[in-house]
Design a protein around this nucleic acid. Structure first.
Lengths: 117, 117
DNA sequence: CGGAATGTGTACTATGTAGTACACAGTTAA
DNA sequence: TTAACTGTGTACTACATAGTACACATTCCG
């Protein structure tokens, strides 16, 4: 049901089509897991791996770490830590922006980036 | 080391001083855990409880849910879900605001609240 | 052809999470 | 003064997480 596995497989096979060294076994070895495990992950036989393993996959396959984590139903620890520092404020912001359209959220992103405080 | 337990204990004892029915046993019973367990939680003998139990404690003791979760080193599932929906955008906002002072973050909160999109 | 590389099935395991169950000693109240 | 209520120590447990280990059948290619 989670599209995580198939996404990984597509990314890896796209890479494999372009350059050598992206067989399941090779990638598994580079990110430090058993081939059988990566196989099961890609087919969705087992749930998505740990945050650490997902991060390695992201780097290996050139995908955004936060996006890959989101596909796995997770949120990176450093983002959680940011919220944890000021739970009241960030909880408010997130809940307020939950239903805002992308362009509105993007406006905030830019505003904050350019904002002077 | 986590101040979660002592915070809970202080909240509960403050309540107990004002009105009856806030003994450790009574509260434990209302939130649906064993007294021995709540005792260990309050003393930090065991790690903070699950999100669900923390939520019940928050309601029971009149404390902000997100604050209590933060003290427990957690972030509520619904906030994680919001990030998970648009990981790219929200990851940017959070990382940009990580080091911003409270008043700047508060300005954003107000701006978003009053903002029309 | 034959050895290397490929993906996969089955079985097992270590660690963490979130508690329960019960007994016990001290305190309080009728 | 005894019955109920208080907090706590010890032992145990169910379930989830995040994998490993090894064998196996195919496919590729030199």
């Amino acid at each position: 049901m989670t599209p995580f596995g198939s996404h990984i497989r597509e990314l890896r096979e796209a890479r494999a089509a372009l350059e050598t060294g992206y067989s399941l076994r090779k990638v598994a070895h580079r990110i430090g897991v058993e081939p059988a495990y990566l196989s099961k992950v890609e087919r969705g036989v087992v749930p998505p791996p740990s945050e650490e393993t997902i991060s390695k996959l992201a780097e290996e396959l050139g995908e955004d770490r936060d996006v890959l984590l989101a596909l796995a139903g997770k949120v990176s620890r450093d983002l959680m830590e940011i919220i944890r520092q000021r739970p009241g404020l960030f909880a408010q912001i997130l809940r307020q922006l939950r239903d805002a359209p992308d362009h509105a959220v993007l406006r905030i992103v830019r505003e904050v980036r350019d904002g002077e405080w």
